[in-house]
Write a protein that binds this DNA or RNA. Structure first.
Lengths: 334, 334
DNA sequence: CTGAAAGCGCTAACAC
DNA sequence: GTGTTAGCGCTTTCAG
């Protein structure tokens, strides 16, 4: 069997208290004692038992992150930043890919309820707010990008309506008039697409243009293939737009591909604006103009929300609705 | 604060023992008592504390799975099966994407050492066997696909030499004589590519052909793009092969793409065989002939190895080297 | 600076 | 079929 604190103490000829101090570095220990303890730890190959520590502390030091898919560049980049920030706070992150499925989202919440995790960050696609809130009472929860009613959980997101409006206004300012939108997702609970469509339409109306249904293309998922398909539909529809606002960079890159294949010149014949500012967009041909959410702030503030609730469970702060900044990054595609 | 077993017991007017029995279903409980307890659980919103249960049981019920990348179809399919099999055994799986990096592989092993996980399944790309064995003594470890010296850990893999030999022999039997290989990875510790190259060369020699260096293409990673690039190099090299054995299906699909683009007809001008039998290969154009490792068996036997060591830690069975079956799936590409 | 001991929430051996 | 209780390995309060 493996060695415990008590074994190390016996070997070093000190009490468990002292060994614990050496391991955790909490209190100060005399140099000689410390050395003896460290030797004993080395010789016995002692490793602290995390389960015991969790039980004692009432915390596991683990937080759960539920995102639809890790292979999507936006979520991969965001997850990367969240993991790095979590490490700074000495938290371990368990990443759960939900595939946008309700069952997977529920599973993570259930584990949260069993205190397997100190907090959850979830990008909900399938579950509605009511179910989210009911599933893990007592476990700090941060929602990413979902339009949730107040009172459910902390929420961190950009102002999707405003961001979409700015992207569309940018295209209008360049004299574009037939601006299509790619990325509606009527089949999902996720309200992000709804908000971006709202901003897009608002900008058009303000410019005296009436949104037309044919210019708004729904997609199954937010991948390149969906964007490529949507663009093909637009081009085949007869009324070719002079600009496209895609609700994600992946969609935009797919659309760019189709435009290129069909012989359209971007941005001369058609301008393209995306959303997310993923790494690929820097290197695409042409480089992609896009709405850039401040991912670092999303990561930092999400963890700050969790930390506030984990370390001060008594303080009943009402759920916050944090809006992180975004900016329009102008590159060659528009 | 949340409720404990004791609170439920007080509310239902029974002892903690009885509540524990109801929750775990271990012993039989009188119907009336059970109902009262269940009501109390419901009213108090009781959820068992996993940390306490783990401490008591000496197990966490969590196993770690470290794979290089989840977005690679082969690993995604394998991970899917492993997760499903683990669920059947009431284990939770923590998936760690290592990106093939040593640091990430070490991190998971360290957590294993702290008993955060009952066992580890790792597909090692960066760490060598010595480091793997030293990092988490006492934690059951299963290695996937690595050529490890005996005595280190259980290993589960197909017979890579034999499988590669059969694939090459299949091409030879069709009269192909200029057979190229795509997928050498001299920069990685991972020995899989070495073994497949060995089988490939063995088959050639047995047919009286001497392997030529120019026909063996090294790749950075095992993705479609690498396969496409390698095929382009082959075609540009002057000596165009009449068959290609790719060490992964993704490489093969990339190669297929390049061949198609360059106007070569597959399988008429060139036959292509892959390795892995991923879903995409069923639907590629032409459908891909490939070596199909029995993924279900890899999953089942890996977990069986873990189970044996987790539930019978006393029995010091020497590390096993399990060879799972494979078969050549003949489709249109060869 | 160090020792003794309580207790985190749960399970199961030992009573009855 | 149910109650009582020791103890999993750790941290930390209380003494010294």
């Amino acid at each position: 069997m493996s060695s415990r604190l008590k074994d190390v103490a016996a070997r070093a000829g000190v009490s468990v208290r002292t060994v614990s101090n050496v391991v955790s570095g909490t209190a100060s220990v005399a140099a000689g004692t410390r050395r003896r303890v460290e030797e004993a730890i080395e010789e016995l190959g002692y490793r602290p038992n995390l389960a015991a520590r969790s039980l004692r502390a009432g915390r596991t030091g683990i937080i759960g992150l539920a995102i639809p898919e890790l292979h999507s560049p936006y979520f991969a980049e965001l997850a990367g930043r969240l993991v790095r920030e979590a490490q700074r706070r000495s938290w371990t992150v368990i990443i759960d890919q939900t595939g946008g499925e309700a069952e997977a989202e529920r599973r993570l919440l259930a584990q949260g309820g069993e205190r397997a995790m100190d907090g959850l960050i979830i990008s909900p696609w399938a579950l509605d707010s009511a179910e989210l809130a009911a599933a893990a009472p007592g476990t700090p929860l941060v929602l990413l990008g979902e339009r949730s009613p107040h009172g459910v959980a902390d929420r961190v997101a950009v102002d999707n309506v405003m961001a979409a409006r700015e992207a569309t206004e940018f295209l209008l300012a360049q004299g574009r008039r037939r601006i299509a939108a790619i990325g509606l997702q009527p089949h999902l609970r996720n309200g992000t697409a709804v908000l971006r469509a709202e901003g897009y339409r608002g900008a058009l109306r303000q410019a005296g243009l009436e949104p037309v249904v044919e210019a708004e293309r729904a997609v199954e998922a937010l991948h390149r293939a969906d964007g490529a398909r949507a663009m093909a539909e637009l081009l085949d529809s007869g009324s070719v737009p002079d600009a496209v606002f895609a609700f994600s960079d992946e969609l935009a890159l797919g659309a760019l591909h189709t435009a290129h294949t069909r012989g359209l010149r971007v941005p001369d014949d058609m301008a393209v604006v995306g959303f997310d500012d993923i790494e690929d967009g820097h290197y695409s041909n042409p480089a992609l103009t896009t709405v850039s959410p401040d991912k670092q702030q999303i990561a930092e503030r999400s963890l700050q929300c969790l930390a506030d609730r984990i370390y001060s469970p008594g303080t009943a702060v009402p759920p916050q609705d944090l809006v992180v900044p975004h900016r329009l990054v102008r590159r060659a595609s528009a």
